[in-house]
């Protein structure tokens, strides 16, 4: 039996009258890749934000190793959880290398920090060549790689990815998913990845949750989900 690393129990997030999440239960076990899928505004990003204390939790609990935590954004990373938010959001005023350095902000040992930079640059070789470039000058795909690499600086046990494929060409999307799988296999990193409706993502995940209007509609293994027409229904807005 694998240990559950992260769990959201009955989480509700309300923005004024908007119920971004309504009693959501989601969990992530050791070493697995889990997808959160659903249409725009389903609440996918809010799930990840809630884990980092960046969304106002009205009720419910966040559990880390079965222990209830009160997440504070700058402290969650110290537990071993990394978050790569939606829209890349690299630090454009900093160079590629400096982005990685601040990505390892919590590493206080300088040689260790440099070792991590070398390691993640080996995974993302394109960054090696552009290490001295201001990250604002990178292409969209390169910036996504940098955002991923920055998230890996702390050698996390859990990686939260919000729409890593956003705005990327199909070929690059495949490459990004490949990297995600690679990270998971090599380092046993548990990954929770948010996407809209990309069937190819289901090829690399162990389980998937389908969200709509702030609720988990269904979840299960990808093969089981693919056999039903639930995905089509949700994304065409035909699900009631």
């Amino acid at each position: 039996m694998k240990e559950t690393l992260l769990e959201l129990k009955n989480i509700s997030v309300h923005y004024g009258g908007v119920h971004a999440l309504d009693g959501v239960n989601v969990s992530l076990d050791e070493g697995e890749i889990v997808a959160l899928m659903g249409p725009n505004g389903a609440g996918k990003s809010t799930v990840l934000k809630a884990i980092f204390g960046l969304a106002p939790i009205n009720s419910g609990r966040v559990l880390w190793h079965q222990q209830s935590i009160n997440p504070v954004a700058h402290e969650v990373v110290r537990l071993g959880v990394s978050f790569v938010p939606q829209g890349r959001r690299v630090f454009t005023r900093l160079t590629v290398e400096e982005n990685l350095e601040v990505g390892g902000f919590i590493i206080k040992n300088k040689p260790e920090l440099n070792r991590r930079i070398r390691e993640v640059m080996q995974i993302f070789t394109v960054l090696e060549r552009k290490r001295k470039y201001k990250s604002g000058t990178l292409s969209g795909g390169e910036q996504q790689m940098l955002a991923l690499a920055r998230g890996l600086m702390t050698d996390p046990k859990v990686l939260l990815l919000d729409e890593p494929s956003l705005g990327l060409a199909p070929k690059i999307v495949k490459e990004v998913f490949q990297k995600i799988k690679e990270i998971n296999e090599r380092h046993k990193t548990a990954i929770m990845v948010v996407e809209h409706n990309i069937k190819s993502l289901l090829e690399i995940v162990d389980r998937a949750y389908i969200l709509d209007k702030g609720k988990v509609i269904t979840y299960g293994e990808p093969q089981a989900l693919l056999k039903t027409d639930i995905l089509e229904k949700v994304f065409l807005g035909k699900f009631e």
Partner: peptide, 9 residues
């Protein structure tokens, strides 16, 4: 926000 996420107080 991202600065917080990477652990900067």
């Amino acid at each position: 926000e991202v600065a917080k996420i990477i652990g900067i107080d």
